[in-house]
Simulated scan of single mutants.
Amino acid sequence: MNVFFEEDVSKESLYKTVFSQKSEGIILSSMYYESQYFDELLKLGIPYIMFNRKHKSGGNFVEIDNHQAGYLGAKYLVSKGHKDIHFFSGELEKSTFLNRYKGFCEAMDELNTAYDSTISITKQNPELIREELEKVLSQEKRPSAIFAATDMIALTLIDCLQKMNLRIPEDIAIIGIDNTETLKHSSLNLTSIGPVEGEHLSSIAVEQLFKMIENGEMKEFQRTIPCKLYERGTV
């Protein structure tokens, strides 16, 4: 069984590596929503699971309800009195970010809260995130809260904000998505949105892939896990 993440290598190299190796099964978190490589993945004829990603054509995947995550985060920040919320997202060509963005927008529309000029779309590169944050904070109207589309983006933003001597949450609030275990630590205490208690994407992906391999089962597997907000100390 092979596990491939988009951060490991370039997109082209990743798929070349995947398709050239003899594998019993694949867990893949690098699939773009309209990826040209999806058909090639199917042609391999081996069990696979897309991890918190899915292709527009469906296929096998396990994910959190990314739309719900974006929706819950926006509703929560507004409920805490924040009207100037900046949304930091990765590329919308990925279903994870696309649906989190759509959920955020839907909630803001329902709450009749403006957001058109308060969205940053950037690659998950710390330097690019830092540069974008500097632009955001240089605006005449600084946001009172930042909604990061992943905990890892939130972690980069927290590091940048602290280096600017901005206090969290006193000067600016911040939340993330994924409820990453290490960011629950008291030194960060990140408010985040993740799967409901008892549900773990990684365990589900591995267990399901082993079932497919052992049973020779090629029936389509699709599972979306509901989310909840974990309130901690950054808002």
Rank of each mutant, 00 (worst) to 15 (best):
G59Y: 09
G59P: 05
N60E: 08
F61V: 03
F61H: 04
F61A: 04
V62W: 00
E63I: 10
I64W: 02
I64A: 07
I64N: 05
D65Q: 09
D65N: 15
N66Y: 01
N66Q: 08
N66M: 01
N66D: 08
N66C: 01
Q68G: 03
Q68V: 05
Q68T: 03
A69R: 04
A69H: 02
G70T: 04
G70Q: 07
G70W: 02
Y71F: 07
Y71S: 00
L72K: 06
G73F: 05
A74C: 05
Y76H: 06
Y76K: 01
L77G: 03
L77P: 11
L77V: 09
V78F: 12
S79N: 14
S79Q: 13
K80H: 00
G81H: 03
H82A: 08
K83N: 11
D84Q: 14
D84K: 11
D84N: 13
I85M: 07
H86A: 02
H86K: 04
H86L: 00
F87Y: 02
F87I: 00
S89P: 04
S89H: 01
S89N: 04
G90V: 01
G90E: 04
G90W: 02
E91F: 09
E91Q: 08
E91M: 07
E91K: 10
E91H: 08
E91T: 05
L92N: 02
E93K: 05
E93G: 08
E93I: 08
E93T: 11
K94Q: 02
S95L: 08
S95M: 02
F97G: 08
N99W: 01
N99R: 13
R100M: 06
Y101F: 15
K102W: 11
K102R: 15
K102T: 14
K102N: 15
G103L: 01
G103V: 10
G103N: 02
F104N: 03
F104H: 01
C105K: 14
E106Y: 13
E106W: 09
A107C: 06
A107P: 01
M108K: 05
D109A: 11
D109Y: 11
D109Q: 13
D109S: 10
D109H: 12
E110R: 09
E110Y: 06
L111M: 14
L111D: 08
N112D: 14
N112C: 13
N112M: 13
T113A: 09
T113H: 09
T113K: 12
Y115E: 14
Y115V: 11
Y115S: 14
Y115D: 13
S117Q: 15
S117V: 09
I119G: 09
I119W: 03
I119P: 07
S120H: 10
I121E: 12
T122D: 01
T122L: 09
T122W: 02
K123Q: 15
K123L: 12
K123F: 11
Q124R: 13
Q124E: 13
N125Y: 13
N125D: 14
P126T: 09
E127P: 04
E127N: 13
E127K: 14
L128T: 02
L128F: 12
L128K: 10
I129H: 07
I129R: 01
I129C: 03
I129Y: 03
R130Y: 00
R130N: 10
